[in-house]
C-alpha cells in the first residue's frame, strides 16, 4: 500500500465511513437539503436544526463512498453551536486543507481528511455533505450537486 493511500484511508476515516455518526432522520430539523454527486451517484440528505442562528444538531441520510460518508459524519459532529457564517469560514479552511494539505486554522479532528489533497478526483466526495449543509442553512431550494463547486 502506498503512503498516500494510508494517509487517505486512515482508521478514523474508515471508522466514520463504516459507522457514520448522526446518521438518520431528524424530527425537529428546520433546514434540509439534498446533495448529489452525478459523477458517482452519491447522495446525501442533510437535516439541520438551528436555534438563534446556531446549529444545534445535524443528521444525514444517504449513501456514498468512505470519503463522503466520513466527511459528512465528522462534519455533523464538529460544527455544533456554530453560526452559518462561522461554518462558511470552517468550510473555506477545510477546502484549503483537502486541496493543499494545509489549513489556516487548526481544524482539529478534520485534519484526518488532509490526505484527500493527493487525490484531486476525490475532493468532490469530501465536500458533498458540506455543500448540502450550507445550502440547507441558506434555505436554498432544490438540490446541490458537486458540479456547482466553485473555487473558494
Amino acid at each position: 500500500m502506498t503512503a498516500e493511500l494510508r494517509e487517505l484511508y486512515q482508521s478514523v476515516i474508515i471508522d466514520h465511513g463504516r459507522h457514520p455518526r448522526n446518521f438518520g432522520a431528524l424530527a425537529n430539523a428546520n433546514h434540509h437539503h439534498e446533495g448529489f454527486n452525478p459523477l458517482c451517484g452519491d447522495r446525501i440528505l442533510i437535516h439541520a436544526q438551528t436555534q438563534n442562528d446556531r446549529v444545534e444538531k445535524i443528521m444525514f441520510e444517504g449513501s456514498g463512498c468512505a470519503i463522503s460518508m466520513a466527511s459528512a459524519s465528522l462534519m455533523s459532529d464538529l460544527l455544533l453551536k456554530k453560526t452559518r457564517a462561522e461554518i462558511e469560514t470552517v468550510f473555506a479552511d477545510f477546502h484549503q486543507l483537502i486541496t493543499t494539505g494545509h489549513a489556516n486554522q487548526d481544524l482539529g479532528k478534520l485534519r484526518v481528511m488532509s490526505g484527500v489533497h493527493e487525490f484531486p478526483l476525490r475532493v468532490k466526495c469530501a465536500t458533498l455533505a458540506w455543500h448540502a449543509l450550507l445550502a440547507a442553512l441558506r434555505d436554498v431550494s432544490g438540490k446541490v450537486t458537486t458540479e456547482d463547486e466553485e473555487p473558494i
Binding site: 459523477l39 458517482c40 456514498g64 487525490f119
Partner: peptide, 28 residues
Amino acid sequence: IHPHDMGTILDRSGIAIRAGHHCAMPLV
C-alpha cells in the same frame, strides 16, 4: 465497499476500472 474507493485504491496499483452509475442510472 463503495466502487469509488475501490477505483482510487486500484489506480494506485496502475489498474484502471470504472466506478459509478455508468451513464445508466435507471439500470443501476
